[in-house]
């Protein structure tokens, strides 16, 4: 996996309204989400609040609810929604012929 984009697998491997993770050696996991509308997003798998695993949360609309304290995090911006304040780094995603590609440079940054 070299180049600008990392090929992490098929879109269909991510459950709709669910997520999977990408393990990054020496760093945090990247959580990859798929919404009901079929959009795919990637974020560092840590809530800005108490570092809950966002990949384990409930995905609704364009957000995920952190499993620890129910903070809602925007999948597109990584920002906490509502009254909460905080932001999780996002990783650009592109879909090519059914494959999910995530930006390599952003992955390194988000996982660090």
């Amino acid at each position: 996996m070299t180049g600008d984009w990392l090929d992490i697998g098929w879109v269909d491997e991510i459950p709709v309204r669910g997520s999977r993770t990408v393990q990054v050696a020496g760093g945090d996991d990247i959580a990859v989400f798929r919404t009901a509308e079929g959009k795919v997003f990637a974020l560092r798998d840590r809530c800005p609040h108490k570092h809950g695993r966002l990949s384990q949360g409930i995905v609704h609309g364009g957000a995920v609810a952190c499993p620890l304290h129910n903070w809602r995090i925007s999948l597109s911006t990584g920002e906490a929604l509502g009254e909460d304040k905080g932001c999780t780094p996002t990783v650009p995603v592109k879909i090519d012929a059914g494959r999910v590609l995530i930006c390599r440079a952003s992955t390194l940054k988000a996982a660090a």
Partner: peptide, 17 residues
């Protein structure tokens, strides 16, 4: 099984900052 296994593993060549 998808609930338990990561989708992919990535070992960067460079040191993470």
């Amino acid at each position: 099984r998808e609930h338990h296994a990561p989708m992919a593993r990535f070992t960067p060549q460079e040191q993470l900052a």
